[in-house]
Amino acid sequence: MNVLIAGAGRLGTRVAQVLSAAGNHVTIVDADEDRVEALRGQCDAHLLVGDAGEAAVQERAGVARADLVVVATGRDEDNLVISLLAKRRFAAPRVVARVNDDENAWLFDHRWGVDIAVPAATPLVSLIEEATGTADTVALLRLSTAGVGIIETAITTRSKAAGRTLGDIALPEGTLVATVVRGGNPTAPSPSMRLEPGDELLLVSHSADEHEIHAAFQ
């Protein structure tokens, strides 16, 4: 699957890490050159500096070949313009857009090229903004076209998985660990990898929800 992500913040980076680890071709676009440079080595994605609200930038990023466009900047007006351009100019088949301000949620629909709106009130954005540091397992995103969900769980000193290897943990059927983020760096997981407090696991699953993942690790 070809994925174009507009916005190299925490949300865009997390989605990129999971989808690229699962073998998808991912491109991230952000107007902030320093932010883009900081991502080098953090995920196997093509990085591009530019304003995704410009047709030339989207074209250069390969939006015409994208199966999924994730619009995740911190400004609703930018997200709407990027979504509309991707859908109307380049006929993107699926556009997922982040809503930063609840008062703007009514705008995020097919009229602006948005297929799936991610409201600020959902656990996803709460996690991305790090507004709730208490949740250890959160569903990040559901990709309807791919039929999979992306779930994050954090290992703490209280987690039953702390000190155990990945091979010792019984995962729900149809679930795999896409990457383990340790010290801010994504690591390719192996059955012999021993989990440590502070590790963040990104999982891809066809059927499991965050409660099942929590039960496996916490």
Rank of each mutant, 00 (worst) to 15 (best):
Q58F: 06
S159P: 04
H206R: 14
L166H: 03
F217H: 11
A120L: 05
L195E: 08
D136E: 12
E54A: 00
A64G: 00
W106F: 13
E130P: 08
D78E: 11
D115N: 14
A216L: 06
L107Q: 07
R98D: 01
A117D: 02
V70R: 04
R164G: 11
R60N: 06
V95F: 06
T156R: 00
S20Y: 02
A215D: 14
E173A: 15
V96D: 02
L48F: 06
A120M: 02
I82T: 03
V180Q: 01
L48G: 02
K160R: 05
D101S: 09
P186H: 12
E33M: 03
D30T: 08
I28R: 04
S159N: 10
E59R: 03
P191V: 03
R94I: 13
S83W: 03
P93D: 06
D102S: 13
M1V: 13
A91D: 03
C43A: 10
A120P: 12
V204Q: 12
A161D: 02
E152L: 15
V49T: 05
A22E: 14
G50W: 09
A178C: 10
V181R: 10
R94G: 11
I150E: 12
T132D: 15
I155F: 01
P119E: 05
F90L: 01
V118T: 02
D109Q: 04
G133A: 09
A86H: 02
E77K: 13
V36E: 07
T179S: 13
A162D: 06
E152I: 10
V63E: 07
A31D: 04
